[in-house]
């Protein structure tokens, strides 16, 4: 449809639509863009120019180097990476297996267990950490990467919830015909049902992955050793030594954002659909 042939009201609506959408995008991106500008400024430049001015060169990487070194961010990435891989892998298996049992087998107490998991989802993570801390302490899980992984798996209700929802829509006839063919229950799960869970796996990878990558509170509590910092606790160390030297802080912030930005560009559609199917309820 060309502009000439549009009704005036339609034309006005189109203009309005683009104006608000562009404004909103600017508001969403501006705080990040200013960070990008600042991260490329030398300290003298940072002190002398307005924060909105462009840096002299976008090839000045000194701030990033300082940030990486000062906050030991390589180590942070390594730790977060290991935690991410292990936690995601384990929680996909434990979550889907649990959902399979709860959805397909009715036994004494299955309803109760189901409800226990659902109620657990209501308890906000930070709230219980006061007492979880004591348990972690008595189990000697503090200051071990595996301790942090275990506690992250233990507070994982989202993926269980997603898998439960997904199983509701997988017909039981699939299981039955496989059992007729002599398949064991293990076979039914691993050979027949697990491959069908792909959309639910993507959803839980997205939601859980974002959650783990960004997790700060428990990492701060349970990984206090300097070498065990994750990316978010490494970033938090910028509150101290750099004070108001935002050219370094912005560089640090960007370093944490860049990996997730790249992943987002690649997996945009999966992220959106993961978000949508993770939230739709009832």
């Amino acid at each position: 449809m060309t502009i000439m042939r549009m009704k005036p009201s339609t034309f006005l609506f189109t203009v309005f639509k683009y104006v608000v959408i562009i404004l909103a995008s600017i508001v969403a991106l501006l705080p990040i863009v200013v960070c990008v500008l600042t991260a490329f400024k030398t300290t003298e430049e940072y002190n002398a120019t307005s924060v909105l001015d462009l840096p002299a060169s976008f090839l000045y990487f000194e701030n990033f180097a300082v940030a990486l070194k000062q906050a030991n961010m390589f180590r942070g990435f390594l730790n977060t990476g290991v935690v991410l891989v292990v936690v995601l892998l384990v929680s996909i298996f434990t979550g889907s297996m649990l959902a399979y049992v709860l959805n397909r087998f009715k036994f004494k107490g299955s309803g109760v267990i189901h409800n226990l998991f659902m109620f657990a989802a209501l308890i906000p993570g930070i709230a219980t950490q006061v007492t979880v801390y004591q348990i972690m302490y008595s189990l000697h899980l503090i200051n071990h990467l595996y301790g942090y992984m275990i506690v992250l798996m233990g507070t994982d209700i989202i993926s269980i919830y997603i898998f439960l929802q997904f199983f509701e829509n997988l017909p039981v006839s699939l299981d039955e015909s496989a059992i007729m063919d002599g398949c064991t229950y293990f076979g039914v799960f691993f050979k027949i049902l697990f491959p069908l869970l792909k959309p639910a796996i993507v959803t839980s990878l997205v939601l859980k992955g974002v959650g783990v990558y960004n997790e700060y509170y428990m990492s701060n509590l349970y990984l206090q050793d300097k070498n065990l910092k994750t990316i978010s606790t490494a970033l938090y160390t910028f509150t101290g030594p750099f004070g108001n030297q935002y050219n370094y802080i912005c560089a640090g912030v960007l370093i944490t954002i860049i990996p997730i930005f790249i992943l987002f560009l690649i997996f945009q559609e999966q992220v959106y659909s993961g978000m949508a199917s993770g939230a739709v309820k009832g």
Partner: peptide
């Protein structure tokens, strides 16, 4: 994408920004 992206940034980074 522009409007959604802030959601993916970790809370600590949002704080600094």
């Amino acid at each position: 994408g522009a409007m959604f992206f802030p959601y993916l940034i970790c809370g600590i980074a949002v704080g600094f920004i």
